[in-house]
Amino acid sequence: MPAVYIYLDWNVFDGLQKIQQLNDSDKEAFTFINNLIAQQNVFVPYSNAHINDLIRGYKKNPTYTQGDLSFIAQITGNLAVVQYWGHDQVTWHQRDVFQFFEDALEEKSNDFDSLEKLCEGDEFGMMKTMMDLFKSVPLPDNFSKLFELDPVFDKIFATSREKLTIYSLMDDLMKMSSLLKTDYSIYKSLRGFTSKIIKKYKNDPSLKAQLQILDNQEAPNFLKASSDEMYEWAKNKSSSKTSGNSDYSKVIDTYLKIDWRGYKSDERFDNMIDDALHTFYAAHCHFFVTEDDRCHYKATETFKELGILTRVFKPKEFLSFVKQTLKDGDSGQILREG
């Protein structure tokens, strides 16, 4: 029988570590998965999405990180599946999980999350001179009206509200990525604000008249757009390229688009991004096992929309599926349906 690859979400790795603490019904499913791995009936890779999960945990409490890394090494045998920057396909290889974690931790420590921190690395002082210039350039007078639209903008543009300068706006935009990761309400609020504005102005005759005067052909279409069309519009307007790997772009974009629809949507932006990554890597395996209800739904929908054959299960569902398959006497069905 060909090799079977199972991609496990971090919550399943965590459950495998804590089998003895689980209730009886959960313990049966996790013990079954553990035995499959121990008997080398399946192969389990880890990815940089797991590394991201561990880094978040490490920043909150580093006590358990070494044990978590040891467990990943034990379960996976250091088999990694990674989409490296600049590559047009994933790489399957042996990579020491401890070294991977240390490299990723060091890389994240060099991230710039503010203009002030960025300027600290400017040994010639040229950037600081430029930033000082921007501190004296005011924002347009009507920028303040933004804060009347929704309270979420008070959080996103906190510095700009206090100091109405181009520098403050640039600094707020630079901090936004970090802010989305630490304030779990912002992503949800932005999505809600967008839906509210669309509903409010979709049939507003005065807005339509203003757009006609401005000869803006695009905005009326945007106001009529569905959730998926809005996502595609925003993605196409972005100048950033997700990856040279078209499959990566398809899976990640589809997952995020499904989240944007609002059903079983994540409230934590960083979790959503990493779950999209987990889904991409799971697409290279026969099965994806996760305890997360939101991820389970969105991964299933992503694979369905893209015609990817990977099956998504929760641990108990996976146990039931294999038991039924073996009962039917057709072990080959596992791979054919996977």
Rank of each mutant, 00 (worst) to 15 (best):
F157Y: 14
Y64L: 08
T242G: 05
C285D: 07
D26N: 09
K199Y: 05
L118I: 15
L118F: 15
K264F: 14
F101A: 03
V312N: 02
D150F: 13
G262R: 12
D88Q: 12
L180A: 03
L326D: 09
S47H: 02
N271P: 04
T63F: 07
Q210N: 06
I75H: 00
K250D: 11
K60L: 14
S177M: 04
G338C: 06
G121R: 13
I273Y: 05
D68Q: 13
D330A: 10
L211F: 04
E148C: 11
S206A: 08
E291F: 12
Y201C: 04
A73Y: 00
I37C: 02
L169G: 01
K59M: 05
Y84I: 08
T310L: 11
E267H: 08
K18Y: 10
F288T: 00
V12R: 01
D215T: 09
D103I: 13
S240V: 09
S168E: 05
N236Y: 10
K181V: 00
L133T: 10
I197F: 04
S25L: 09
L8N: 07
V251G: 00
P62K: 02
D122C: 12
T63S: 14
Q17E: 15
Y5E: 05
M1E: 13
V152D: 03
F32H: 15
A49Y: 00
L118Y: 14
K202I: 08
P220V: 06
K200N: 09
K188D: 14
P62E: 02
L309P: 06
M130H: 14
G77V: 03
V12T: 01
F112A: 10
D328W: 09
L164P: 05
I72T: 01
T279L: 07
D171Q: 06
D247I: 10
K200W: 05
P45W: 02
L326V: 14
R161D: 02
T302L: 06
G244T: 09
H284T: 03
E148V: 11
T254D: 06
K323M: 10
N236A: 11
L306T: 04
Q40G: 05
S189D: 15
A299L: 07
S177Y: 08
D266S: 12
F269T: 06
D150V: 12
T290N: 06
L306H: 07
T325I: 10
W233P: 05
T279N: 07
Q66I: 09
K224T: 06
S238F: 07
S243L: 07
Q89V: 03
N78R: 03
L118H: 07
C285S: 13
S243R: 05
Q21G: 08
D292G: 02
L211S: 03
V82F: 05
L335F: 06
K108N: 13
N110R: 14
T310S: 11
V44L: 09
C285P: 07
G262K: 12
I55M: 02
L79Q: 14
A3V: 11
K18A: 11
G86C: 08
E102H: 03
S243Q: 03
E337H: 12
T310K: 08
F147C: 11
F318A: 00
D103G: 05
W85K: 12
L146N: 09
Y58F: 13
T279F: 04
F157I: 01
V289E: 03
Q89S: 11
S168N: 09
P62Y: 01
D293N: 10
V322F: 12
T129D: 11
K18M: 10
F71T: 00
L169D: 00
R294A: 14
S160R: 01
I156W: 01
S246G: 08
V42A: 04
E107G: 05
A209C: 03
Y5H: 10
